[in-house]
């Protein structure tokens, strides 16, 4: 066991295995290290060595950083694993089927990011409808005095907004857009009994009755390419798509065709199928707003995330119910 990978050697402290892509740092390591014994294999030159070491046998808690993938192979090296503490809203980077089979609990960021993501979704929507980024380019390039008035945008008030996935993010988006005079409807796996917004059992019917689709559901086998050409056809020429969920929720190739051919009106995209690669056809379009997967990234949301992660760790080590468990069923 290489000493440099273990922080805080106090033997009586609960032990956590940090799992991260080399490019990601644990944002609140300094706080965690005062309470836990942290094992960080990526601090050593040979990260894989830890996973075949005897110490891997006793790891009960895994803390993957951001989107670092937790595969079945990783899980196999950790026979005593009981809990994966996720630090993102979507947990598609964790092999949930394997966790379910092994009875390993998984937590996510809970609602830590919900407000920031909802803010961002509203920002992208206003940007697309009112063409803010394109107008900002117009001013910066000196076109205003030369070409005169900028083309008209379209009004947000009165738009019918369809929310795909009414979890805590979707709910925060709905709450905000109601204040702008939008009407809200939603699609999700099942109708929420406490929610008054109209429910659509399938996403095509939601799209056909919406001017704007906001995609904020989890990426699973069932939701992969959920937004395909049928949905976009139902949304129609005046329709706008906002995606702050995951790139693979949309069939990106088909969406690019719809945008290029004017079969939908515009899109605001924070996520893409093959990040950081973005289809270059989109770069030429003024009716799209492109963002490098930034919706959650504010210092404020990291503070809230830290509180959620700590609360989950405390709950796990004191045998209490986890604060933000992911439903594995």
């Amino acid at each position: 066991m290489a000493a440099q990978i273990v922080e805080n050697e106090e033997p009586q402290l609960p032990q956590i295995l940090i799992h991260r892509l080399p490019s990601f740092d644990l944002p609140f390591k300094a706080q965690l290290v005062t309470r836990f014994r942290l094992i960080d294999p990526y601090a050593s030159s040979d990260p894989t060595a830890f996973f075949s070491s005897p110490q891997a046998q006793s790891v009960r808690v895994l803390l993957p950083v951001g989107p670092s993938p937790v595969t079945a192979d990783t899980l196999r090296c950790l026979p005593s694993l009981q809990c994966v503490i996720g630090s993102s809203a979507g947990v598609d980077h964790i092999d949930l089927a394997e966790c379910r089979r092994r009875g390993i609990a998984v937590t996510n960021a809970g609602s830590a990011f919900s407000e920031d993501v909802a803010d961002y979704a509203v920002g992208l929507l206003i940007d697309v409808l009112r063409r803010l980024s394109a107008a900002d380019r117009y001013v910066r390039s000196g076109s205003w005095p030369v070409k005169g008035e900028y083309p008209l945008g379209s009004k947000l008030g009165g738009k019918r907004v369809g929310i795909v996935g009414l979890g805590s993010i979707g709910y925060e988006i709905a709450k905000r857009l109601e204040a702008f005079g939008c009407s809200i409807a939603y699609n999700s796996r099942k109708k929420k009994p406490s929610v008054l917004f109209p429910f659509h059992e399938n996403v095509c019917s939601l799209a056909a009755n919406s001017d704007v689709l906001i995609i904020c559901c989890a990426l699973t086998n069932e939701t992969h390419h959920l937004i395909n050409k049928d949905v976009m056809t139902a949304l129609g020429k005046e329709g706008v798509i906002i995606n702050i969920g995951r790139g693979a929720l949309i069939n990106e190739k088909e969406m690019v065709q719809f945008l290029v051919q004017g079969e939908i009106k515009g899109a605001g995209l924070d996520v893409f199928e093959n990040e950081p690669n973005v289809p270059k056809e989109l770069f030429e379009l003024d009716n799209v707003v492109l963002s490098p997967h930034r919706a959650v990234l504010t210092p404020e949301s990291f503070t809230t995330l830290y509180e959620v992660v700590m609360a989950n760790l405390d709950a796990f080590f004191s045998n209490k119910p986890l604060v933000s468990p992911v439903d594995l069923e």
Partner: peptide
Amino acid sequence: LATMRRIC
């Protein structure tokens, strides 16, 4: 939103 969240 565009200014604070640096969207443009």
